[in-house]
Write a protein that binds this DNA or RNA. Structure first.
Lengths: 386, 386
DNA sequence: GCACTTTGGCAACAGCGTTGCTTAAGTGGG
DNA sequence: CCCACTTAAGCAACGCTGTTGCCAAAGTGC
């Protein structure tokens, strides 16, 4: 089994409250790596790292020395002097580690190899029939992975992130009753892929992987909802910079919220689901109505969770992004303005960047994220005296 | 100003990612205090603390020695021997610290003094006209606080938590346009009260304070939604053991989610808000319909956030708790069963315990929480090698 | 060319949890 | 009754953390 390749998430979920010195060391290294990644190609100086992390300059020097020794960071030029010795700039070495991202969709698969900076180095798209047998799908997936994996030195690939349609259990890596694909129910996809690839694997819902990837591009502790309108209507939620999955990875069922009591019956058995209304409007050739309904649902989400932004994605949206963005924004604004109490602030609606490989890249980020800590991390330590 | 009394929340929000030894020390002390509190009157032995925290027994001995020296913990008897030296039991000393909780509602105020274990030691209820001038309200509030504060030694009261109707900004402690009370718009309530009381003050929405208090009674990282049906319909969200407030403390606007497109106009200006439908049913003497609508909204929330439980509270519910619990549970179950995809799991609907002082007690817990760390705390340290 | 400013490394240090061992305090067999 | 055994908790030495004080390096500007 994958006992020799524990999934990275286990590391993050050891989660007994106590902390010791190795943990402290790893945490601070992850914080500085996170700041280095956030700085991008411009780099950061040691003193800037000290300011942003709250560590002393001397501690930053020691930690970055270890990072440089491990090949994860390097010096890269100098800043202009401000009257004294100029600051030396440190940068992440993107080629030091790689992660694989694999998106298994109903009719195609996308595999990417991403470097430490999160940039795609190799991409591979191929048709896939997710309804076929497990062996067939796994073999095809492993082939796609092998093809992109060849672009990096074997030893520097730290794991694979896999995204597929839900529902599934993120912790155990087991699929549940994927809509329309009953034969996958209960299949331990993570363990099977980990054994086949010989790599640690993390498994997540496609919308969660997308949201996670999008969260990396925003800074720090932003909150947003990513609405995905394709063959269905789902959502990925990022709250305070982290993906919210819920206890059983079931969060994000945006499409089956009821917005019309006793409305038309939905395929799921309920009445008045927003997915049914939206898709009916799309089918009727009325994207304006679909966007209006979507905006009402987005307003419900904004008021319930107080998110900063709404991102739109999915095939239906990508067919005419501007129309959907405008339509949803108008509908959302009208709802929020009418209400007013929420401060009448504007909540931007924007298309999700990234295109067709966005989900796969987000899946790769799930693995890379185990190396970094968010710049404003949730270290709960600073308790009152004692 | 309150510069000499920084609100406890600032301690928790220093939030620069870097961690040093004093922080580590404070964190571990907070973890053990949290475990001691969770153990309650039964107490815990040092070795059990070690198992649950992940710390070594020796570290637990050192840290608990400091806690005992500070008067926060004490030895209390022994366990039965299992063949060797019997374990000595440690317990929290409830009287070591106190916190004040103050609930300012539209027509009454409730002040409580809670000890370290979270138990109310003194309670004071009195009528209040929140529509009166700020000076008058503040004077009355300060009087109520002084009355309960007298029940504890002055130096052991560590702060006051204040809950009032939203919207407000939890970070700055400033009120926004409280519905029906426009004169409070922009009032810096936290600073004013901190100065008047000479204590650190945290301010939060009433629903958030209630949810926070309820979260203490559950174990660890539970998620639930607390729905409050009174003069309005609001919610407090607890996700993974922590209250979700959103970026501007605006989260929890459950009542103004649209569940009937183009439905009847709500007081807020929108159409088909669940609050309007619910309250109309209550006014029409049809609590069954109110519960049915509430159940549909609860199902939306469960599917979007994957919470474990739904708690019901508020005056309207308290008038006939069983009827509402049954009605909401039936409606929620019907929705979830129809959908099925969520695993067809049952989500319990229960009345919120605690009664009339629940919000005030939750507000006190907001202050006490700064001393404790959750048993499965979000220490993000354990990153991969290096 | 000298004075000044700023950066970053070196060495000594205090404090953290850890390790190896000792002492305390029970149980149970002979 | 006594001794062997077991388990709990403390003591001392230790390795490692970030911190502090100091100094060399590398610029600017008069």
């Amino acid at each position: 089994m994958s006992s020799e390749h524990p999934p990275p998430s286990d590391l993050a979920e050891r989660a007994l409250g106590g902390a010791n010195l190795p943990l402290l060391r790893g945490h601070n290294a992850a914080v500085l790596l996170g700041l280095l990644r956030a700085a991008g190609e411009g780099g950061v100086s040691r003193l800037e790292l000290a300011e942003r992390s709250g560590l002393t300059p001397q501690a930053v020097s020691k930690i970055t020395a270890r990072l440089r020794e491990a090949g994860l960071a390097a010096e890269a030029g100098r800043r202009a002097s401000t009257g004294g010795k100029p600051r030396t700039v440190l940068r992440l070495v993107p080629g030091a580690r790689y992660a694989i991202g694999l998106h298994l969709d109903r009719d195609e698969s996308v595999a990417v190899l991403a470097d430490l900076a999160g940039e795609p180095v190799a991409v591979r798209r191929a048709p896939l029939d997710l309804g076929a047998g497990a062996d067939e799908v796994l073999a095809a997936a492993a082939d796609r992975v092998a093809e992109v994996r060849a672009a990096a030195p074997e030893a520097q690939v730290i794991g694979a992130g896999v995204a597929c349609p839900g529902p599934l259990d993120h912790r155990t890596g087991v699929l549940h009753r994927v809509t329309g694909l009953p034969r996958w129910d209960g299949y331990p996809l993570r363990a099977a892929l980990a054994e086949r690839l010989g790599l640690p694997v993390v498994l997540d819902k496609d919308t969660n992987a997308a949201a996670h990837g999008l969260a990396q591009q925003a800074d720090g502790a932003e909150s947003f909802g990513y609405l995905h309108l394709g063959t269905g209507l789902g959502a990925g939620l990022v709250l305070g910079g982290a993906v919210h999955r819920g206890a059983r990875t079931g969060a994000g069922e945006f499409g089956h919220q009821v917005v019309q009591l006793d409305g038309p019956r939905c395929g799921c058995g309920k009445r008045g689901c927003i997915e049914a209304l939206c898709l009916a409007a799309v089918a009727a050739g009325d994207p304006a109505e679909a966007a209006r309904v979507l905006g009402v649902g987005a307003a419900n989400l904004v008021e319930l969770l107080d998110v900063d932004r709404i991102l739109l994605g999915g095939r239906t949206v990508l067919a005419d992004p501007q129309a959907y963005v405008r339509g949803v924004a108008a509908s959302l604004d009208a709802q929020l303005r009418a209400h007013g109490a929420a401060g009448a602030r504007a909540v931007p609606v924007v298309p999700a960047p990234g295109g067709a490989q966005m989900v796969a890249l987000g899946a790769a980020h799930l693995v890379l994220a185990t190396l970094f800590a968010p710049p404003r991390g949730p270290f709960t330590g600073a308790r009152a005296a004692l």
